[in-house]
Amino acid sequence: MKIYSLLFALLWLQGCHSKAQNEVSYPKLVIPAGTGQYCFIRSIMQDKAGNIWFATSGAGVYRYDGKGFVNFTTKDGLNNNLVNCMLEDSRGNIWVGTKDGVSKFDGKRFNDFALPWTRTPITSPFFRQTVPQKGCMPQANKTVLSMLQDKMGNIWFGTQDEGVIQYNGKTFTEFLANEGPLGNDGFHHVAIFNMYQEKSGNIWFGSYRYDGKTFKNFPFIENTSDSSDIVVRSYKDMLEQKSFFSSTNNILEDKKGNLWLNHSCRYGVAKYDGKTITNFTDKDGLCDNIVRAIAADKEGNIWIGSKRKDARGMKEGCISIYDGKAFRAFSTEKMSNSSVESLFVDKDNNIWIGTREVGLYRYDGKTLTAFTEKQVNN
């Protein structure tokens, strides 16, 4: 018996030694050399073991165990370093949605998980760019923007151009592929940026709510009178055409069961109580109407991350906190990066803030700590 115990211990130590050789941990999140200024932390999640994962739009994903960061990129099997979303399923598997589909983590490496793409190739009108920029949003399809595992165990993949794909563990079913405006390529285009399942069981795919049988679209109400703004004009036109822009970027359910929704354009946030929609903008105390992220802390406060332009016309990040009665500003003076792109509350009630330039910060209720470090070229 002692011999078997000794062999087991040796094998365990060897496994740990091999893993340590493959995974190099750093005290801070190190930005790879050459990463563009528009590369940002797209989403954040915490797994069952307590590790926190950070998805970036150009530098792969990072895993933080409370002591250091490990960076996973295409060298570790990711199908693309431009990552949009992450998911831990009920079995503890980590799924990553990228510009080129889905990668699944087996504990050591990422492996490609094939989705049944039917529209190949397509250049999305939503992400078309005159001058391509490294680390920016994707230009083609096969892009997974969001993921969700529902209470029945089905995994849903929100895509850029093919609606949402449901995977029940064996087969795939496609929904919403024929929503959105009709493009010159003959296909409809709808981008599913976010998915959320209510406590009631209803699932939201952007602004589409699914009760298990039918989908209902909840159009976002216009919140601005600045008709001279080209973004506002374009956004309004697209809404009238039932555009993919009507898809909600973020969805959050607070302690009272209210749903908070926002769009990436200049429309602030909306609170839906199941009957009516209440809209909040800078007139109500928001630091800016371009909202990029929403999170709720354990006290029930709603954190809202935005981007705005200062007096010099330079972009900067700002955060508003809603306590149920009013908005107050969270100081971002110590944040050197621009737009706030992601917010996350971990199990210890720390607030993680992701920004452009792959900026990462943690607020523990008293102190704001920076966790990003640029790679030094020798």
Results as ranks from 00 to 15, higher is better:
303 W>H: 04
298 K>C: 04
136 C>Y: 10
36 G>Y: 08
239 L>E: 11
219 P>C: 02
156 W>R: 11
288 D>Y: 03
211 D>I: 02
232 V>S: 14
175 F>N: 02
53 W>L: 02
173 T>F: 08
133 Q>K: 14
165 I>T: 12
74 T>A: 07
280 F>S: 07
168 N>K: 05
91 R>A: 13
365 G>S: 01
267 Y>R: 07
28 K>R: 15
238 M>P: 00
191 A>K: 12
241 Q>W: 01
221 I>W: 00
267 Y>T: 07
221 I>K: 11
371 F>D: 03
363 Y>P: 01
316 E>Q: 10
46 Q>N: 08
42 R>H: 15
333 E>S: 11
16 C>A: 15
242 K>M: 05
253 E>V: 09
319 I>S: 12
129 Q>D: 10
211 D>E: 09
205 F>G: 06
138 P>W: 06
345 V>E: 07
138 P>A: 13
64 Y>M: 01
177 A>C: 01
219 P>S: 00
302 I>P: 05
151 K>C: 01
76 D>Q: 12
248 T>V: 00
5 S>D: 07
91 R>F: 03
292 R>E: 03
124 S>M: 04
150 D>Y: 05
166 Q>K: 15
172 F>R: 11
46 Q>C: 02
18 S>R: 10
102 V>T: 15
157 F>E: 10
242 K>E: 08
243 S>Q: 04
43 S>E: 11
161 D>W: 02
175 F>Q: 00
63 R>G: 05
329 A>C: 03
3 I>P: 01
180 G>S: 00
17 H>D: 12
329 A>Y: 00
352 W>G: 06
166 Q>R: 15
66 G>P: 05
59 A>H: 06
71 N>I: 06
151 K>I: 06
